[in-house]
């Protein structure tokens, strides 16, 4: 459930931090108190070490800053507040192409101390995943609501879209990954959602 409705205005993150930080902490403590420790897999750190070492040892020709700039440009141009199916498809194509190029990214700082070059590369990989989720979710939401203004679907559609988009990253057998969408109903409590008339 969100605390801002469909449009969290800039700098209002403090409410989310307070509400969900508190809820997450309480829930985590309750869970920890009522569950036994799980058995660790044989190599729990393996996946993370592999991710880091792949980036540190890669000799590919792509640079983090170049791909990040390209991602920012397509998201800014094609997946901003005002969007259409065409611009979102363009963004999706661009992000997927950037994900392919990301496989060839290499870093110059090979050190293990305060390696911001490595950190930015890891972040870029996650940002590309996130950008893809944003675009896939926006493509399927064929209405306009809050900070999501589809120029090809200018009206709000409570019948089909009064619900939260849940996005899951699904790994395929061939090693690639795709996005699976699901939806969760909005639980209405004290404040009735209503159309913005101003």
């Amino acid at each position: 459930m969100s605390v801002h409705g469909a449009n969290r205005l800039g700098t209002n993150s403090l409410l989310d931090i307070n509400v969900f930080g508190r809820r997450a902490g309480i829930a985590a403590a309750e869970y920890a108190n009522n569950h036994d420790l799980v058995e660790l897999p044989a190599d729990p750190q393996g996946q993370t070490i592999a991710l880091v070492e792949q980036l540190r040892s890669s000799t590919g020709g792509e640079r983090v800053a170049t791909l990040r700039r390209a991602m920012q440009e397509t998201m800014d141009l094609n997946a901003q507040v005002y969007r259409t199916e065409a611009t979102l498809k363009q963004a999706l194509n661009d992000v997927q192409e950037l994900k392919r190029r990301f496989a060839n990214v290499s870093i110059q700082d090979k050190g293990v101390r305060y390696n911001t070059d490595l950190m930015e590369a890891i972040e870029l990989g996650f940002l590309l995943d996130l950008a893809e989720l944003v675009v896939v979710g926006a493509l399927e939401r064929k209405e306009s609501r809050g900070g999501h203004a589809r120029e090809d679907y200018p009206n709000r559609d409570d019948v089909n879209f009064m619900r939260h988009t849940m996005a899951y990253r699904r790994s395929e057998a061939d090693g690639s990954a795709s996005v699976r969408l699901d939806y969760k109903p909005v639980s209405v409590t004290r404040y009735q959602p209503m159309e913005r008339k101003y």
Binding site: R63, V64, A65, T66, R68, R69, D109, G111, T116, D117
Partner: peptide, 14 residues
């Protein structure tokens, strides 16, 4: 600094 790091020397740390 971001341009130097991104285009010239990725080891520059800040």
């Amino acid at each position: 600094l971001e341009k130097i790091k991104g285009e010239i020397d990725g080891t520059l740390s800040f």
